[in-house]
Simulated scan of single mutants.
Amino acid sequence: MNKRNNTIKGVFLPFAVLLMFSSCAETPGPDEGAADARTIRFASAALTRAAIDDANGLNTPGESFSVWGNYTDNTSGSGTVTGVFDAEKVTYSEGTGWGYENTEYWYPGKTYRFYALHPSVDGLGEGTEATCDYEGSFSVTGFDATHGIDLMVARAEPREINSVQDPAAPVAFAFAHRLARLSFAVKAVGCEATVTAFKVNGVTWKADLSCPASGNPSWSDPQKTADGDSRLTKAGGEITVADGTTVSMLGDVLLPPHTADELAADAVISMAYRLKGDTEDRMAAVKLATGTITQWDAGQQYSYTLTVSASSITLTWKVKAWDEQDTEVSWGPDETGGTN
């Protein structure tokens, strides 16, 4: 899977991260062979730094996720809670698969619960913190979307271990995207266009996520892109868009969801461009809220294209499945979604 630059509530990915557990005796310190057979193991994969499409994007050396886990003292799930994992980092290595440092085992007569966050806590970036309580409520503060991280959470079904003879069946995490996935492109029709500046303003690039064990996730304390900053800005100088071609401006963009009010109020594409023969830039400012796309939901993908001709500039868009890719050049969206 190619890495990219920089995401339907409750949507689950069509793949799972499997945790391979074996039962173990209540008393720690089994003999070496038995301990190895009963160790909590992780099969399958973690996640890449950019948007995750399928399981093939997971098994990458160096990738990691964090796991929280606990058990209660009876199979009803109530009683004293004992921690098993506290943001334990699980890392993929070539040849050995997924592993972690602090080995844990199953104990009989317990009910286990496990929760996971991608990426691992230490991969969230400086200034970002993440916690998860014993019920599976996540809190991520200071999340910076400009790092291009596919933020996801998962909660495994509670698991009862009744005896040391219980089979070591895998426990699966079904990860849910907590960001919206976006792409922005420019297409030239009947002309050649040179884009000299391209920026998305008025959208949230940093915020805090509250993801309760039950109920809907929510974002707070948003910070938005604005004129004068370098966020969501085309880099690398001028870009020439030949007649009939479509060129991506920002690559793969992952941002927190936006409500209808947030998108309608501030979100805009600002672009400076020239047509062949122009001596000065033409300026365009186009709002991102459309008749079809009134908000951005987590787990959904939105493609925007500015189509430039000699006499006009129009915005076209499409709402797509998370893993749907375009057939045009460099992430250029097709134009079946609508126009402004």
Rank of each mutant, 00 (worst) to 15 (best):
R4G: 13
T7R: 15
T7S: 15
G10W: 03
G10V: 07
V11A: 11
F15K: 02
L19K: 08
L19P: 00
C24M: 01
R38V: 12
R38D: 13
T39C: 03
T39E: 05
R41K: 03
F42R: 02
F42C: 02
A45S: 06
L47Y: 09
T48R: 01
A51M: 13
I52N: 12
D54R: 01
N56T: 07
N59P: 09
P61H: 06
S64W: 12
D73Y: 05
T75W: 07
S76F: 06
G77V: 01
V84L: 14
K89F: 01
V90H: 04
Y92W: 12
G99S: 08
N102E: 11
T103V: 13
Y107A: 14
G109H: 02
Y112Q: 00
A116G: 08
H118Q: 10
E126A: 13
T131V: 13
D133F: 07
Y134G: 15
Y134C: 15
S139K: 15
D144I: 02
H147N: 11
L151F: 01
A156Q: 03
E157A: 07
N162W: 09
N162A: 10
S163G: 07
V164G: 08
A172E: 06
F173I: 01
F175R: 00
R178C: 12
F184P: 03
F184H: 03
F184N: 05
A185E: 02
A188D: 07
V189Q: 10
E192P: 04
E192K: 05
T196N: 08
N201F: 09
V203W: 05
V203S: 00
W205E: 12
D208C: 11
G215F: 02
G215N: 04
S218H: 14
W219M: 01
D221E: 06
T225A: 11
G228A: 08
S230I: 12
K234V: 00
G236T: 01
G236V: 00
T240V: 14
T240H: 09
G244A: 00
V253Q: 05
E262F: 02
V268A: 15
S270P: 02
M271V: 14
A272S: 07
A272D: 11
Y273C: 06
L275E: 01
G277A: 01
D278T: 12
D281L: 06
M283C: 04
A285V: 07
K287W: 15
T292H: 06
Q295L: 11
S303K: 04
Y304V: 10
S312M: 09
T314S: 07
W317I: 12
K318I: 13
K318P: 14
V319Q: 11
K320T: 15
W322D: 14
W322P: 14
D323C: 03
D323A: 10
D326I: 05
D326W: 12
E328K: 00
V329M: 13
D334C: 06
T336C: 08
